[in-house]
Simulated scan of single mutants.
Amino acid sequence: MSIPPPPGPHQPPGSPEQPQGPYAQGPYAYPYHPYGPYGRPVPVNGVAIGSLVLGILCFVPAVGLVLGLIALAQIKKRGERGKGMAIAGSVLSSVGLALWVLALSTGSASDFWDGFKGAARGDGTAYALAKGDCFDTPTGDLEGDAYDIDEVSCAGEHDGEVFAVVTLPGGAFPGDDEIELTADDKCYALQDGYAMDTWAVPDDVDVYYLVPSRQSWRLGDREITCLLGSTAEDGRLTGSLRADPTTLDADQTAFLSATNAIDAALYEEPEEYPEDDLSANQDWAKGMHAELGEQIAALRGHSWRAEAKKPVADLIEDMEDARKEWSRAAVARDADTFYTHYESGYDYVDGPTTVTARKALGLDTTVPEPYEDDSEGGGSGIAGVLDA
């Protein structure tokens, strides 16, 4: 992903910010052109321009030097302008030629070319980051602007870990706010697909993302890079948080897929309390009943290893009891009755049978702290943004 260069103080010619033409600097600022005999402008020698360009670029310094010498001869013969450009091109080309000779004799040309190719690939920038990569930032901070990163091993300490890369559609730049909203929706939705064992994710870890800036969008940057990072002051990650089918066995994947689907349904609880909108909560309870039925069927249909069969069966029994409570909550006649079945439906969640099943499957058994919403508007909100 592109990390844009810091914006410079000047705008390119012709941009809306810098008006061009006779009145660009004021009502009396007319452009100045040197004129030759009979009022006709003296032309600039084209070879001199070519010499200067090649001298600045230093790609083919020998050609720039030859062009400079040819231009000086033509200018003297024709009376054209461009002598200064021809001289500058010749001098720069001579310096470039000397540097090329030195580089070839010491072998540093190969090192330079390798570095150039690395820059083109985006090495050392967010362009180089892919799912599963870990990295450090120069400041150790995942908020604000950043122009480079250092990819490091996930085994040691690191500032961030990439868990997804989302490609945006082309077209005009949608604006910073729109991109951040998209990143918020996409990244939080993809988090559990990468770190499926949510119990193993430290409490201080949250979602961050790298997003295109207006400048990098002009260069073709269309990627949102979703990250996991610590929200603690000077906090860092240690070891990879990846827990998906590439690192889990079939039993672990099946179990976490079912329990995470139920958790996702639980998170859809309406913002309105039952006493304010009983109908919305009844609809949600009906959805919980359906989701539990689907995931119970998935767990029963899986062939479990010997040591996990009974623990998973015990958990399924609790889930069946909870499913009945959600069915009753879905038809509750008042808020008090709804709350009674609501609480019973929640009883099994993160309970003893869940812990026992997790232990049998080799998953984390540390029960997570209850979720508390400290934001003003509800929801977990954005933990931070790192512009790319």
Rank of each mutant, 00 (worst) to 15 (best):
Q25I: 05
V47K: 02
G55L: 12
G46P: 01
G50T: 02
P27K: 08
W113F: 12
L54H: 09
P31S: 00
A48H: 04
V60A: 14
G26N: 08
S110Q: 15
G46H: 11
V66Y: 13
C58I: 05
A48F: 14
V63N: 07
R81C: 05
L104E: 12
G50M: 05
V66A: 10
G39R: 03
S105H: 09
L97P: 10
G79K: 00
Y30V: 06
S94D: 06
L69H: 11
G39A: 06
I87A: 12
G124L: 08
C58F: 08
S51F: 08
W113D: 10
A86I: 01
G107N: 11
G64S: 07
L69D: 01
Y28G: 00
L72Q: 01
P43D: 03
L92V: 08
Q18H: 09
P34Y: 10
S51V: 00
G46N: 08
A126E: 00
S90Y: 11
K76H: 13
T106C: 11
G26E: 04
V47E: 01
G115W: 09
G39P: 04
S51A: 04
P41K: 02
L102S: 14
I70L: 06
Y38I: 02
A130K: 13
V44N: 05
Y127G: 07
R121F: 12
I49V: 09
V60E: 15
D111R: 12
L97Q: 12
G84T: 08
K77Q: 11
A48R: 04
V66F: 10
V60G: 15
Q74N: 09
G50I: 01
A88M: 15
W113C: 09
R121I: 10
P19N: 07
L72V: 09
A98Q: 12
G26A: 07
G124R: 04
I56E: 06
A73Y: 09
G46E: 04
G36E: 01
A48W: 03
L67K: 01
W100E: 02
G68Q: 02
S105W: 06
L57H: 14
S94I: 05
P19C: 03
G46Q: 14
P34H: 05
P19V: 02
L65H: 11
A130D: 14
A128W: 04
G122C: 08
I56Y: 14
C58S: 15
Y38K: 00
S110K: 14
A88F: 15
V47M: 03
E80H: 07
S110L: 15
K117L: 08
S94G: 13
A119T: 03
P37N: 11
T125W: 10
S108T: 10
S108I: 04
A109F: 13
V53F: 06
L102V: 14
G122S: 15
Y30Q: 10
F59R: 04
L129N: 03
A98M: 09
G50A: 03
Y30P: 09
S108E: 15
P34D: 01
G79M: 05
A29E: 13
Y30W: 00
Y30K: 06
A98F: 07
R121Q: 05
F116C: 14
T125K: 06
P61A: 01
P31Q: 00
S94T: 15
Y38G: 13
A120K: 14
P41E: 00
L52K: 03
A130T: 13
